[in-house]
Amino acid sequence: MSIATQYLDVHQRMRDQGVIFSFVGYVSEGILFSLGEALKQKMRLEETDANVTKRVFSIFVEQVQNIIRYSAERLHAESGTPTEMSSGLITVGRDATHFFVVCGNIVGRAEGEDLRGRLDELARMDPDTIKTYYREKLREPPEEGSRGASIGLIEIARRSTRPIEFGLTELDADRAFFCLKAYI
């Protein structure tokens, strides 16, 4: 298979799934910003409803910040400012009826289980309960050891117009791959 056929195949498969863009590798806050700008621009050019654009952008930001903060694969600067790069997967696309934002990253198995527990809880809630839960969490002091993920996850569930989908798959004794898909 030639290199062009090989990558055309990748390209074609993504397009068939309605992918607007997909990023795999180390993400930083700078990459979040640039991808976010491209996303907003694309949606503006297509004259997407402003409220839909905001929902997509909002979910995108929370998803990517979750990767940056919680991916188990990360690089730290040796010294100086706490520049972080964390490895993960970000895909934004559109199917026949909805936009979708998917994020995936490697997590420690224990953290992954904890995350799944929180998401199971969220998935059982109706929109009004999610809203009330969000308000409660907003008033609470930050959780021990957390850097704000739970409120970010609630924000994702709240902005999603269909129930969120998520999963965890074991990689080895210590690690698992986690992914979360939200629809707008």
Binding site: K54, F57, S58, V61, E62, Q65, L138, P142, G148, I151, G152, I154, E155
Partner: peptide
């Protein structure tokens, strides 16, 4: 016009 969840906090 827009803020993320950490800003909401």
């Amino acid at each position: 016009a827009y803020f993320n969840s950490s800003s909401a906090k």
